[in-house]
Amino acid sequence: MTTIRDVAREAGVSVATVSRIINNKGEASPETIARVEQVIKRLNYKPNLLAKSLSKRTSDLIGLLVPTLNNPFFPELVKEIETAANAEGYNIFLCNSDDQRSKVKYYLDSMVDHYVSGAIINSLHVNADDLAMLEARGIRTITIDRANFEHAYSAVTVDHQLGAWKAANHLICDSGCSNIVFLSGPKDEKSSSDRFAGFRKAVEHAPHPVNTSIVYGDFSMESGYHEIKRYIESGKTFDSIVSSNDAMAIGAIHACNEFHIRMPEQVKIVGYDNISSGSFITPTLTTVDQKKSEIGKIAVQELIRLIQDKNGQSKQYNLEPDLIIRNSSATK
């Protein structure tokens, strides 16, 4: 691999001169600059970006901590954030914690070691001390949605109570459903409890009596499949499902198909997230759109504002989700 020393030797100049020319610093004659640039091109030399970061104590990297890449929502969110960051001249340092505190700690330390300019955090296992540590080291932060605590730093949240209310209200008022299963995420997760609160509010204000049941998954397709399969095998009847995310809703659809339950004729299903695959399954999935693209743009733009203005005040953004009606809950 070509090094800066190779370039300097071929061009007949010092390493310091090559470094100054690469970084547009210091004086050099036009002839020297042209000769060095020709050698760089001929040798296909690529500057060591990590070394530049170490010398400058900063970089064009934005740390992005996500809880998992198994849930389709998060790879799609990562893509939106990466697109927004690249458009502003930043690259993403992706950190997948697998929802493990040990990995969260490792990646937070790695962000410091790699001199990221800012950090976008989406994790249940990050606490206020973690954010304070990053900020104290000059790494501005913004959390997305999953933080289970209040903090003074920038944040982008989604009104999950409203989203779940829209999902349940659609089934109750538009379709007349009266026996609904709420397929929840983990009990101890704030987004799960927020979505259940919105669901419960819709039920409490329903124009007709509504029977409800709740089963708990872990946001994976497998858990949605197994929980609804067990529910069907128990002999309990239901006419609809509100799922806390699309992955579990897709699993629920597979379970219903396995038992030859027709959708939407016998059971109507609404998911949550608006992942791309929801438009390509049968039936296509009614869902609540969290607005991934908007989340990505806001998170990146807010973080860049904070990076550029070290004394900039934090801001909180709360987005209103939309209901997208497709065939899984269609009415005649």
Rank of each mutant, 00 (worst) to 15 (best):
K291V: 01
L306I: 08
D289M: 05
E302G: 06
K292G: 04
L303H: 07
G296N: 10
L303Y: 07
L303E: 09
Q290F: 09
Q308T: 10
G312M: 03
L285M: 07
T286I: 07
G312F: 07
T284N: 07
E302C: 12
A299P: 01
G312H: 10
K297C: 01
K297P: 00
T287C: 08
L285E: 03
K310V: 09
N311H: 13
I307N: 10
K310P: 01
I304P: 01
E294M: 11
T286Q: 06
N311P: 00
I295N: 04
Q313E: 12
T286D: 04
G312D: 10
D289A: 08
G296Y: 01
E302R: 15
G296Q: 01
R305W: 11
T284H: 10
Q290Y: 08
Q313I: 12
K310C: 07
V288Y: 01
Q308K: 12
R305E: 12
Q313T: 14
I307W: 10
V288M: 06
T284E: 14
Q313A: 14
I295G: 04
K292M: 14
D309T: 12
V300G: 05
G296F: 01
N311Q: 15
G312E: 13
Q290P: 02
R305Q: 13
L303I: 13
Q313H: 10
I307P: 13
K297M: 09
K310R: 14
Q308W: 02
T287M: 09
G312C: 04
D289S: 08
E294L: 14
Q301H: 14
E294K: 10
I298Y: 08
D309G: 04
A299S: 15
K310Q: 13
Q313D: 08
K291H: 15
G296C: 05
R305I: 06
S293F: 01
E294V: 12
V300T: 08
Q301W: 03
T284I: 03
S293Q: 15
I304A: 10
I307M: 15
T287P: 08
D309P: 02
T287A: 04
G312I: 04
Q290V: 14
T286L: 03
T287S: 15
I295P: 05
I295H: 05
Q308N: 15
A299R: 00
N311M: 03
I307H: 05
Q290C: 09
R305F: 10
V288K: 04
T287L: 09
G296K: 00
I304D: 10
L285S: 02
Q313G: 03
V288W: 02
T287G: 08
G312Q: 11
N311S: 13
